[in-house]
Amino acid sequence: MNNLILTTKGKLKIKQYIEICKKKKKRILELGLDTAEKTKIRSLTDIYIELNVDPYVIDAEGVTYSFYITDHICEKLSLTLNIDYVKGINIDYLKSISIGVREKTKMVNTNIV
């Protein structure tokens, strides 16, 4: 899990992205350029989960992901590190540190007696 935390700007950017996707999908379907039998526009929550779980392009500046808006057409979403999202603390890492500290504390306390 990547543990990316969206900022207020990031949430707004994704909401705007979703609206753009809805408009593009509607226009594509009106023109008969594609179908949308298997595809739905993702919600903010859907995108947040996918950004944290699924593989995507990530580099020092941010993340880029393409989401399908119709059965064969994607729309790219790019989020910038420290503007649209921040990297959160890895909970599993914290747990492992906590367990290690507890074990060391037990050893120190038993050596004192």
Rank of each mutant, 00 (worst) to 15 (best):
M1H: 06
M1K: 05
N3M: 08
L4F: 08
L4D: 04
I5H: 01
T8A: 14
T8G: 00
K11D: 01
L12D: 14
L12T: 15
K13Q: 11
K15N: 15
Y17V: 04
Y17C: 02
E19S: 14
K23H: 08
K23W: 06
K24D: 15
R27Y: 12
R27A: 09
I28Q: 04
I28S: 05
I28P: 03
E30Q: 13
L31H: 05
G32E: 02
G32S: 06
G32V: 04
L33A: 10
D34F: 05
D34A: 03
T35K: 11
T35P: 00
A36P: 00
K38N: 13
T39G: 05
L44R: 01
L44Q: 04
Y48S: 11
Y48Q: 11
Y48F: 12
I49Q: 09
L51H: 06
V53Q: 14
P55Y: 10
I58T: 08
I58E: 15
E61W: 09
E61F: 12
G62F: 06
S66A: 12
S66G: 13
S66P: 01
S66Y: 13
T70P: 05
T70S: 08
T70R: 03
T70E: 02
D71R: 03
E75M: 12
K76L: 12
K76I: 08
L77V: 07
S78W: 11
S78Y: 12
L79T: 07
L79S: 03
D84G: 02
V86Y: 13
G88A: 00
I89N: 04
N90H: 05
I91P: 10
D92Y: 02
K95Q: 10
I99G: 01
I99N: 11
V101E: 08
E103S: 11
K104Y: 11
T105L: 14
V108K: 10
V108H: 00
V113D: 11
